[in-house]
Structures are given as C-alpha cells and as structure tokens.
Computed example of a mutant assay.
Amino acid sequence: MRSSWKGAITFGLVSIPVQLFPATEEHGVSLHQVHAEDGGRIRVKRYCEKENREVPYAEIAKAYESPDGRTAVLTDADLSELPLPSKKIIDVLAFVDASEVDPLLLAKPYYLQTATPAAAKPYVLLREALAGTGRAAVTKITLRTRESLALLRVRGDLLVLQTMLWPDEVRSASGLEPQGKVEVRPQELSMATSLMDTLSEDFDLQALHDDYQHALDTLVAAKLEGVEPPSEEEAGEGAPDNVIDLMAALSASVKAAERSRTAGEPEEPEEGKPPRKSAAKQPAARKTARKQQPEAKKTASSGGRKSPEKTAGKAGGQPAEKTGEKPAKKTAAARRRASA
C-alpha cells in the first residue's frame, strides 16, 4: 500500500511525522460507454468552443463563471499562491468528546503511520491520551489543494484521520420531520423493541457482502465467455407503501423472524394446551367408528337383548344350526306361505 500524503501532526510544540494511507476501497467493475450497435468505444474529447478544435490537457485551466456570465480564469500558479497553513501538517484545533461529533460530518478515513522511528513515542503517547479520555481531536488538513476539517481518533492500535465536511456544508433538515401530532402506544413501542432484539441476535456485520456486485461480476464473466448468464430467482415483491395495522405488522414481523431462526426444530405445544394429534391418525379413528356403527344398529334393533340363536348356542354349547331349531322355523314359514 502506498501512502497518499506525508506531513506531521502538530499540537502545541509537539510534532509527530506521519503518513496517510487510504483506509477504505470500493469494489466494483469499471464500466465505460460504447456504441450499442458495434461496441465501439465512446470518447470524451476536450474541445474548445471558440476555436472549434481539440486542445491538449496542458492548455486547460480552471475557471469560475459568475451568475451574470463573466468568467474568472484561475491557473495553477494562481491557486498555488493561496495561503494554506495546513498544507503539510495536521493542525490540531481542539479535543472533544467523540460522542459530540455528528456522524453526518464524517467523510473519507485514513490510517496514520509514523514516518520515522523517532515518531513512535509521541505517536503512542497521543494515542493513549485519546483512548484514556474518550476524546478525539478536531484538526485541519490540506489534501489535493483543498483544506478541510478532519477528526483524529483511535481505532485499535492506530490513529485514524477522517476528513469532515464544514458545518455550513450540511443542509438543514427543517420541515422534513413527520408533520402533525403522532402518538405511539406503549404496546407498539414494546413490540418494536422486541422485533429489534429478535433481528439483532447473532448479527455479524463482517458476514455481509454486496449481492449486486457479485451478480454484476457473474454477468460480466458470462458475457466475456459468450454464454448465457445464470438465471437469478425473481425478486420478491417490495414492501407495502401503507401500513394499515402497525401492531399486526410488528407482530407478524416478530413471528416471521422467530420462525426463520427456529426452522427445523419441533414445534412445542402452547402452555395449557395438549399437543395436537397428527393428521395421519385421524382417518384411522374415523374408519374404526364406521366399523362400529353396524354393531350398534344390531344392538338397538334387538332392544339390547341377545338373539335366541346366540342364547341357545351358549346354553347348549352348540350352534343353533346343529340343534335343528333353525330348519324347523324355516319349514313352518314355508307352510304358511304355501297356504296363503
């Protein structure tokens, strides 16, 4: 990693030679413009409107155009003569509690490394003093010909410098807050807190990644190989733009979050309620009930008394057919039908 700035931290009569290293980097595929018909590269040329010709970069200067149309041309020599007290130093203005700094002011971060071996002791001294008091240093620094505020704070064993916006560069938020009187019930606040707790369990910020960047890399690789990109699952529907019942939405969100965390675990019965019977056993129970219905009908038709055949069989130890009772009855019935 190559340093992007060299200078010194100064506060009082103390000077600490340091160098800056960018602390972050943005991942992405560099895309450029081409002609859609043939893929030809689209170039932006530096063109002078007055002379109708392309001009080299060495002939280009910066300028400011006033509202009435006048132009003030500023050359590199003009800009180099502007007073920049913080051109090669990180000038400490004051020490403040780190919690007092609005995160909205913070911009690009840099790691600070000592530039010489002799700078190690004052570097560590400043680091320990900031860490022990919970403070950060508000400083000024000039990067790329522009002076800006910066916050000097501790991160682990390193000092970190994070550039800041000037206070007047932050826009006013007046009028953007919810209008009218809004009342939040304690139940809603409790449910929202429960949802926050559920979503925050086992959260690992380091495990997050850029799904869009991964999909873009895959798409570019497929295009370079001349193959069809893998199909992605269709995106789900967006969140509703209106919430009819806030409590119902919060409750459903909590239950959904809990289900996603306990997927695959056996469902426990609710307190005070017996466990539900499995659906597979219910048809068998109904089938058994149907089988018992004819027996019940037989009992009802006989008035609850045992049939003569069964009684005789039980008393004599033989079935009714063997005792001759049943054939006699059939013969008498036949004689009655014949006489009729």
Rank of each mutant, 00 (worst) to 15 (best):
residue 19 Q to G: 08
residue 19 Q to R: 14
residue 19 Q to W: 03
residue 19 Q to N: 07
residue 20 L to A: 02
residue 20 L to I: 01
residue 20 L to H: 00
residue 20 L to Q: 00
residue 21 F to I: 07
residue 21 F to R: 02
residue 21 F to S: 03
residue 21 F to Y: 13
residue 21 F to Q: 04
residue 21 F to K: 02
residue 22 P to D: 03
residue 22 P to V: 05
residue 22 P to G: 03
residue 22 P to Y: 00
residue 22 P to A: 10
residue 22 P to H: 01
residue 23 A to T: 01
residue 23 A to K: 03
residue 24 T to A: 09
residue 24 T to D: 05
residue 24 T to I: 10
residue 24 T to E: 08
residue 24 T to C: 05
residue 24 T to V: 11
residue 25 E to A: 10
residue 26 E to Y: 07
residue 26 E to I: 10
residue 26 E to H: 10
residue 27 H to G: 11
residue 27 H to P: 09
residue 27 H to D: 14
residue 28 G to L: 01
residue 28 G to Y: 01
residue 28 G to A: 03
residue 28 G to M: 00
residue 29 V to L: 11
residue 29 V to A: 09
residue 30 S to W: 11
residue 30 S to G: 14
residue 30 S to M: 14
residue 30 S to K: 15
residue 31 L to T: 08
residue 33 Q to H: 09
residue 33 Q to P: 02
residue 33 Q to I: 07
residue 33 Q to T: 09
residue 33 Q to V: 10
residue 33 Q to L: 12
residue 34 V to N: 06
residue 34 V to H: 07
residue 34 V to R: 04
residue 35 H to R: 14
residue 35 H to E: 14
residue 36 A to S: 13
residue 36 A to N: 12
residue 37 E to L: 09
residue 37 E to Q: 14
residue 37 E to S: 13
residue 37 E to I: 07
residue 37 E to M: 06
residue 38 D to Y: 03
residue 38 D to S: 02
residue 38 D to E: 02
residue 39 G to V: 01
residue 40 G to I: 05
residue 40 G to F: 06
residue 40 G to H: 11
residue 40 G to Q: 14
residue 41 R to W: 04
residue 41 R to L: 07
residue 41 R to P: 07
residue 41 R to F: 05
residue 42 I to M: 11
residue 42 I to H: 08
residue 42 I to Y: 07
residue 42 I to D: 06
residue 42 I to T: 11
residue 42 I to K: 05
residue 43 R to Y: 14
residue 43 R to G: 06
residue 44 V to W: 13
residue 44 V to Q: 15
residue 44 V to A: 15
residue 45 K to F: 13
residue 45 K to V: 15
residue 45 K to L: 14
residue 45 K to C: 10
residue 47 Y to D: 04
residue 47 Y to Q: 04
residue 48 C to V: 01
residue 49 E to P: 12
residue 49 E to T: 12
residue 51 E to I: 03
residue 51 E to Q: 04
residue 51 E to L: 08
residue 52 N to T: 12
residue 52 N to C: 12
residue 52 N to I: 08
residue 53 R to V: 06
residue 53 R to Q: 12
residue 53 R to L: 09
residue 53 R to P: 04
residue 54 E to L: 08
residue 54 E to C: 08
residue 54 E to Y: 06
residue 55 V to W: 04
residue 55 V to S: 01
residue 55 V to N: 03
residue 56 P to H: 01
residue 56 P to D: 06
residue 56 P to N: 02
residue 56 P to K: 03
residue 56 P to E: 05
residue 57 Y to D: 15
residue 57 Y to S: 15
residue 57 Y to E: 15
residue 57 Y to V: 14
residue 58 A to Y: 05
residue 58 A to W: 04
residue 59 E to Q: 07
residue 59 E to T: 04
residue 59 E to G: 00
residue 59 E to C: 02
residue 59 E to V: 01
residue 59 E to K: 04
residue 60 I to H: 01
residue 60 I to N: 00
residue 61 A to M: 05
residue 61 A to V: 11
residue 62 K to G: 00
residue 62 K to C: 00
residue 62 K to V: 01
residue 62 K to F: 00
